[in-house]
Amino acid sequence: MPKADFFTSLGLFVVKDFFDLELCDKIRIESRDAVNNAASVLGKDGKYEVIEEIRKIKYSQVSEETINKVNSCLIAVKPKLEEHFKLELTDCETPQFLRYTKGDFYLPHSDSCNTDNAPQSVKNRQVSAVIFLSSESEELGEEYYGGGALTFYGLIKDPLWQKYGFSLNGEAGLLIAFRCEIWHEVEPIIFGERYTIVSWFF
């Protein structure tokens, strides 16, 4: 499975150790112990709804203090994202804290939508950001999970490669950012729990 540096060569933005392991542990434990609710997707009518055949994940209601800390870290990296993607960005959406348990997944999708009934906030999205709080591994342990690969499609423009998926080896502390129109999925979790933070810059 490709390491994070491989995705840099394909135009994605990668920062290893964006969060240190101590912070990852702290937020992961808070997410685990917080109230967890089923995450929704944008339906055909432009409204958010829970459709577990498409997205089976929980989001954690962490403290405002944690939300604000993560938001500050994301805003601090905005100038580098602007330089990397040659974009002018204004802000980012409130971070979401996601918890995947055994069997959870998210089918292939993009994070932007330009249909008439889509919320303006979704239309405005330009860059997606994912921060890993746990690591993909074959080992068993509280900080590890198996399966659950973040897989990207269409990274190579050659038609022969358009449907080929490149799966990222998730590492605690890693930030990866990509244009919102890129198709991607989270493959089913085999064991353990996968914790990530996601946000979208506009």
Score class of each variant (00 low, 15 high):
K47P: 08
H84V: 03
R55A: 03
V122P: 01
G146F: 02
W183Y: 14
K69D: 05
K102H: 11
L133I: 01
D116N: 14
D116Q: 12
F85K: 01
F152W: 04
P2A: 13
K44I: 09
L23F: 09
A118V: 00
K44L: 06
D5V: 11
E64V: 07
S167Q: 07
F191Y: 09
F13R: 02
P95L: 00
D45H: 10
K157Q: 12
E22Y: 08
I182C: 08
R32D: 10
N114P: 05
K78W: 04
D17H: 13
D111A: 02
G141D: 04
G170P: 00
D20S: 12
E83A: 15
P95N: 04
E30K: 02
Q126D: 06
A118R: 04
G165I: 10
K69C: 07
I75A: 11
E88M: 12
Y195Q: 05
S135V: 03
E181M: 08
I27Q: 09
L98C: 05
A4P: 08
W161L: 13
K78P: 03
H184M: 02
L174A: 02
I156N: 14
I27P: 08
K26I: 02
F7N: 01
L174T: 02
F7G: 00
V77F: 01
C24A: 03
L89G: 06
A118L: 02
L133M: 03
F97G: 01
D116P: 01
T94S: 14
K102L: 11
T66A: 08
G146S: 07
S199W: 03
E64Q: 14
G173R: 15
V130G: 02
S137C: 01
E187W: 04
V62E: 06
D91A: 13
Y100C: 05
E93R: 11
V186T: 11
V50T: 02
H184Y: 04
K3F: 08
V15N: 14
G141M: 05
T94V: 14
P188V: 06
L140C: 13
I51Y: 09
P159K: 13
F201T: 04
